[in-house]
């Protein structure tokens, strides 16, 4: 926030130099005092305002052209598209989940397969040996 200034010819001139010839465009906290100064010293104050207004009029020649209507459409469409697109992290999360799944599967296979295989192998031969024994006995 600006510091409080006393309104005098110097301050009035500074404000006109910076903000131009329309009091309504001056800082809101100084407008009332500027208006009071204008009423008290109309000749001096009005001369300062007129000089600033002359420059305002020249500057108003150089207003930039507004953006093309197509640019509004392009920009709004980019925002709407983005709103309906899946978030960027969704793809990364899917990739991580896939990798975790594949890794867990592979680890599981590494840990379980030999044990099951050994058990099946042993079981198969144990049945065979029992059959052979029974046959040798002649029963």
């Amino acid at each position: 926030m600006s510091e409080m200034h006393t309104m005098n010819p110097d301050r009035f001139s500074e404000l006109a130099d910076a903000f131009g010839g329309e009091l309504s465009r001056w800082p809101s906290d100084e407008q009332a005092r500027a208006q009071a100064f204008l009423s008290a010293e109309p000749e001096l104050a009005q001369a300062l305002l007129d000089e600033a207004a002359a420059l305002d009029a020249l500057l108003d020649l150089d207003v930039t052209a507004p953006p093309a209507p197509a640019l509004y459409e392009t920009i709004a469409a980019s925002g709407i598209r983005r709103a309906f697109a899946p978030p960027r992290w969704a793809g990364i999360a899917a990739a991580i989940a896939l990798m975790c799944g594949a890794g867990t599967g592979w680890l599981g296979a590494q840990m379980n397969t030999p044990t099951n295989h050994d058990a099946l192998y042993a079981n198969a031969f144990s049945v065979l040996s029992e059959t052979e024994t029974l046959f040798e006995d002649g029963s």
């Binding site: 930039t64 953006p67 640019l71 509004y72 709004a76 709407i80 709103a83 309906f84």
Partner: peptide, 24 residues
């Protein structure tokens, strides 16, 4: 929240200022 009306309103409200500053 992706509300299309809000997106259009913000574009309408701010684009002239953004474009003016960039042009200048």
């Amino acid at each position: 929240q992706g509300d299309a009306g809000a997106i259009r309103a913000l574009t309408q409200r701010c684009l002239p200022r953004v474009h003016g500053v960039a042009s200048r």
